[in-house]
Design a protein around this nucleic acid. Sequence first.
DNA 1: AACACGTTGGTAGTCACTACCATATTGGTA
DNA 2: TACCAATATGGTAGTGACTACCAACGTGTT
Lengths: 206, 206
Amino acid sequence: MPGQYSTLRAQRRAETQRAIQAHAIRLFTERGYDATTVTDVAEAAGVSPMTVYRHFPTKEDLVLLDQHGALVAERIAASPDVQPLVRRIGRALIESATTLTGGDDLAAGREFLLARLRLMISTPALRAKHLDNHYALQRSIVDALGVDAADPDTVLRIQAAASACLATLHTALVCWAEDDGRGQLPDMIAKALAAAFGEDATDPHG
Amino acid sequence: MPGQYSTLRAQRRAETQRAIQAHAIRLFTERGYDATTVTDVAEAAGVSPMTVYRHFPTKEDLVLLDQHGALVAERIAASPDVQPLVRRIGRALIESATTLTGGDDLAAGREFLLARLRLMISTPALRAKHLDNHYALQRSIVDALGVDAADPDTVLRIQAAASACLATLHTALVCWAEDDGRGQLPDMIAKALAAAFGEDATDPHG
DNA sequence: AACACGTTGGTAGTCACTACCATATTGGTA
DNA sequence: TACCAATATGGTAGTGACTACCAACGTGTT
């Protein structure tokens, strides 16, 4: 929230935030999400429960992914609009996944991502909110595609394509996590898209 | 939960349950979901808060749809398995929607359904849990399709198709509700499926 | 040195939800 | 008809997430 005019302040804040989240994921994985209270997390991180809420608005936000949404919307807006909708969205999803998993410096980042994914998949509350985040992402994708919203049929068409693509992405994430991240996530997404929409609609060489 | 060996008992129970839910939807619509406490609902229905929890495990269950899942799974299992996956699932969704909206005797039932849908769409907590219900429905659809689960690629293919179809269904529900239920829901679903997967994949005359 | 600001901690409260126990009414039975 | 089991409901007390409101302390700027 607050504007950081100081680097030292921002660094400290970022560090406590990182520590809180790291301890949270560890405890959630060890004892389970529901069996771990926010107070437990705060004690483990050496702060008060209030500080946890200052950095993460809800307990769920300790686990959920954050940057992914903006990444996808950017790529959508930057893509040429001559391709069919599904291919355009699908490519943005694949490229974003490449940035996410490949851009992370080392294996530790991937393990952290995997741990969060596993929690999201197995905990109903987390899974629900994560799916709702995808719904919000769907809205921003539709916005990024630049709809005039004059014709309700056009809106329905775009909304349907976007939601179907995102659901497929979620399925690919689940399968990737259940495979313990052995395969390549972008490949997984491409395969899932091809399965849902047909090979031709998502052919990377098209 | 309990087995109803008596009709009179079951009738009374069903009646209080119906009353609780009706008052809940009314209050949620009037004051907003978050601004209405379970105690408010209980008082309006003339029961104690505990009775509300006996009939509806969570506050969210006062709004969410229930029977839909079983309906879809049945139709999936009953459909011939020669068609492509997306068409098979899509048809089951359309037919279930026909049963839901057409089977309801009169307009009052449709208005009630619309009110619940509007709440589900506009309230984040409800929307999230509803989307998670769709995820559970996805699982039962995959089960109903009878997968041997030997090949992970096959599983991914079916999961992807099912999740994409259900996301499209959700989009159609939203569009239908935003249009105040003026159009026909099954048509809306068919249109959304065609937009996402192409006309040929869902052609009802195929 | 003084001042504004941002980070943290404390307290008290609301609300969803869960045991655990008591009570009354209903349905079938001796 | 009297009795008993099942069931629907109510009460109380408690947990845990989350939210004000206020106090204290450190940091960066003037």
